[in-house]
Design a protein around this nucleic acid. Structure first.
Lengths: 153, 153
DNA sequence: GCACATTCAATTGCGAACAATTAAATGTGA
DNA sequence: TCACATTTAATTGTTCGCAATTGAATGTGC
């Protein structure tokens, strides 16, 4: 009997992999965000950095990295582009000159108002109730945190 | 009364965004996969392409792109790297010379056996039951498909 | 005070990811 | 048949994402 797909192959099937579900959902989100963020002049990772700064201004690069799980190799050039767009300022901390503090400019602050409609548009595109989304979000965050815990070992 | 964080700011809070949960979970998966895939000489996107080919060999670039939601701008250089690693062959279809067919080499086929332990390791890192993961996966896939449906409009 | 380790950002190099364009092959309608 | 549109990969340019390294600033143990 010829079996093209044996039972042992099931774990390797693309459709069975949660990682691919997450990977492809991240790209789908990115494609939905693109036209919305184009109007703000931001990419999605830049938008995430702005979300951090709109919550807390004048923070070290390291803090942004810890919140977004990104390192300086990603953030340094990204922050330079935000600086070139006059949305943030980069200044060395006087207390600890190793740190670079990121602060919003007036333009950076002002952009927050234009960004308020974004989450609403994403919610609409999700075609899903808020409570369902909150439930999924909590599950995914819990999974992410368990994965990150393994990496630190 | 000075309110640093108004109720109107809640939708813009990083921790409230499912997209960031998905985005950061995707990166967490990637970091867990990295040491496992290093032993196979693959990156995560290359691994996804190999998963497709292990299910169905000798497929056009376009079919791989549709399954993985990737375009030729991403796949062409990736497939050239897999070809340089002697895992796949790229040949023009004789029936339709616009198509490039991707076929596994003997090495590419053989790598499947070495890859069988990967899903098990990921499951362990997830620290989660299979049924929970399947449930989450189905929810995420449904969300992804709704997002992709919006893009097509 | 001084060697030493640690912290932090920047840099380099490589591999995605995608928009936009190009070019060749194929399909279609008059 | 022949003009025209469509399909398919490849290419170019920009932006992430991360590993590895560098260099300056800071902390520490003796």
């Amino acid at each position: 009997m010829v079996r093209k797909h044996s039972a042992a192959d099931q774990p390797l099937r693309l459709d069975n992999q949660i990682c691919f579900a997450v990977y492809s959902a991240a790209h789908a989100f990115n494609r939905v965000y693109k036209p919305l963020l184009d109007r703000l002049g931001l990419t999605y990772p830049q938008y995430l950095v702005m979300l951090v700064l709109w919550e807390q201004d004048d923070v070290p690069v390291k803090d942004i990295g810890e919140k977004l799980f990104l390192d300086s190799g990603t953030l340094t050039p990204l922050l330079k582009r935000l600086e070139a767009a006059h949305l943030v300022r980069r200044t060395r901390s006087s207390e600890d000159e190793r740190q670079v503090l990121i602060a919003l400019t007036a333009q950076g602050h002002a952009l927050k108002d234009k960004a308020r409609s974004v989450p609403q548009s994403i919610l609409a595109a999700s075609d899903c109730s808020v409570s369902e989304l909150v439930g999924m979000k909590n599950e995914i965050v819990a999974l992410r945190d368990r994965l990150n815990a393994v990496i630190g070992e």
